[in-house]
Design a protein around this nucleic acid. Sequence first.
DNA 1: GTCTATATGTTGATAGAC
DNA 2: GTCTATCAACATATAGAC
Lengths: 236, 236
Amino acid sequence: MSQPARRPAPRPALQPGTADRLLDAAERLFLERGFRGASLRALTGAAGVNLAAVAYHFGSKDELLRAVLERRIAPVNRERLRRLERLEADWRAGVPRRLEPVLEALLEPAFAAMRDDLESRDIATLLYSEPHESMPELIESLFGECARRFHAALTGVLGRANAATLALRFQMVIGAMIHFLAGRHRMSPEFTRIDPATNDDAVLAELVAFLAAGLRAPALAKPRRRRAACAEESLR
Amino acid sequence: MSQPARRPAPRPALQPGTADRLLDAAERLFLERGFRGASLRALTGAAGVNLAAVAYHFGSKDELLRAVLERRIAPVNRERLRRLERLEADWRAGVPRRLEPVLEALLEPAFAAMRDDLESRDIATLLYSEPHESMPELIESLFGECARRFHAALTGVLGRANAATLALRFQMVIGAMIHFLAGRHRMSPEFTRIDPATNDDAVLAELVAFLAAGLRAPALAKPRRRRAACAEESLR
DNA sequence: GTCTATATGTTGATAGAC
DNA sequence: GTCTATCAACATATAGAC
């Protein structure tokens, strides 16, 4: 209305640009067929763009993958850290430290993203799975800070001792989470025996309950050691 | 010495045959580079056999993959079921049902295989990861019976009610197990903060403790419901 | 920014000699 | 059983017109 002319991105929502349509198609096909299984021809064909657009907009297939992953994962991790920081502020203000809110801060943003974008159900599969030279750095750059911050927060809630056990348990949390975000849609309901109509919120609540109980499990008696009975303090 | 001539398989151990060398090389390279990332030329080159040997001995690359998977997974699942059947015989004889032995029957054979064959650390990665047309049937044919039997055993130990919750929790067990068998070697120790020297037996014990605690967690209060406090009976 | 055309290499599979 | 030679299809990437 007020501007006279020359707008670089006129209608960002009505007609997605070539780059966005490529990202959408790549996301879908990478998930369906894997990185190597989705050729540039299939990608550009599905997006309705020219084959050469990949090189022009992203440079290479590898960088297209990175763009696909970052677009989904970065906002989820930002939300995770935002929620964690609010918890930590509460703790500094004297609110007692509880385990469940930390797990919810870790899990809920991923489930929310899954609910909002059904097409992109689980981007994390691509990281967990296909071997790819640059994956380790990509994992570190995407999840490194987030993982360290949550690990530290769990240490703060569960106690500083027994760091080795907590490191193992934190990976069990990560494993259950990834499998649940990704694996459920890869296996048939006949195999998992999970009702396909199960509400995502219910799954999230069940995950939090399961993982909290696991994290609170008494530390293993090495030769022989007293076990703490208090729930919140049992991993000492 | 005594036989005059014509022996079809003279020295089965000293010099592995072409098929076995192909299986070994394929296993290693599929794990390193993924199914699609390992070409038949790379496979046969590493095995020191001719390219055409794949077609002769296995028919196709797909069937070579199936052979690789079956060779490792079938014996592990046989051992799992053998142990589970011994437990069930004990139960029929009046021994009280406990959760931990069931988890050990599920986990220990996989860890033992990992310990025995360091090269083939985690074959399950190949199933969990790369999308492949025939994977769902392959998963069903390799793990279907085993999964159903363990699911039933867990139902027997934890109680028949709340089947929906148990189905979810069983998948959490599977997820943590897979991630632990596979993921630990994909991520750097700096990322996981797990001491690389950690004993596999210790990891197994920690997994059992974590998962048992998670499986025993009280069922979620739906609107409002009394929670059972007894450990072995809490999932009712 | 988008397109055609093409360069250059690799893939899985197979035919047929030995 | 093992080999060479080769096929047809496909891959990613790029040069250069519009």
